[in-house]
């Protein structure tokens, strides 16, 4: 793999989609109801499709997904966070898909983004619906949703680190994202954590290949078979 591929912004976007898709795939058979099972699988499949399309532009998709070490992955730390409970999964989805919706909306010269933005709008809508229900549901669901927001908030700042090579106004992205997500959290009766001025946004160097601890085991599971039987056709 050449260094040019590693530096391409599409690689970071593909890694985001692949890793979140894998996390959502881990819900299979474990969702609270059958209908959510289908919804989460649907979103995972959309994201996997996005990842495959992006990887294919960069090189061999299997090689990129299965043969890179943790340090070579450029996904943001938000998407690699463990599923936790249903609230953590849906708030993670809200944060990420709101960002993806704004980003893909700006990447009008990238065919994949134009195609995928419709999917992403649906992902955001689904996550928004659930954030409203959990936040404004029972005391217990509110507590869990607030915990999810508080836990994941620190990983959102990384989303607005500029990805060199993408023609995007990152300041507009950040303000648009904050406005939208804050609006949803307000409606869900959830408290918005402190902003970057309090250091709450500090975490996150996934784009530079520095990942959080749960990422390694996830990757080991994902890559196990391919690494055990390198070169096999499947």
């Amino acid at each position: 793999m050449t260094s040019t591929v590693a530096d391409r912004p599409e690689l970071a976007l593909a890694d985001d989609a692949l890793i979140l898709s894998h996390r959502l795939g881990q819900w299979a058979g474990h969702a609270p109801v059958l209908e959510e099972e289908v919804a989460l699988a649907n979103i995972a499949l959309d994201l996997l499709g996005q990842a495959r399309a992006l990887y294919s532009e960069l090189g061999d998709e299997d090689e990129l997904a299965y043969l890179r070490e943790e340090r070579a992955f450029r996904n943001c730390q938000l998407v690699e966070q463990p599923n936790g409970d249903f609230a953590v999964t849906l708030v993670r989805q809200l944060f990420f898909s709101s960002w993806q919706e704004l980003l893909y909306g700006q990447l009008t010269s990238m065919p994949l983004a134009v195609k995928a933005v419709k999917e992403v709008v649906y992902h955001r809508d689904h996550a928004e619906q659930w954030t409203l229900r959990l936040g404004d549901g029972t005391d217990e669901s509110h507590r869990r949703a607030q915990h999810a927001v508080d836990t994941l908030w620190r990983y959102t700042g990384e989303l607005f680190q500029p990805l060199p090579g993408l023609d995007v106004c990152w300041d507009a992205m950040r303000s648009g994202w904050e406005k939208r997500v804050t609006g949803i959290l307000d409606r869900a009766t959830l408290t918005v954590p402190d902003g970057p001025q309090h250091g709450g946004w500090a975490a996150g160097a996934g784009r530079q290949g520095l990942h959080t601890e749960p990422f390694g085991p996830m990757l080991a599971e994902m890559q196990h078979l391919h690494r055990s039987h390198p070169g096999a056709a499947w």
Binding site: E35, V38, A39, N42, D125, H126, Q129, R133
Partner: peptide, 8 residues
């Protein structure tokens, strides 16, 4: 949510 589930 019934609408969204129906769509899926």
């Amino acid at each position: 949510l019934a609408l969204r589930n129906a769509r899926d």
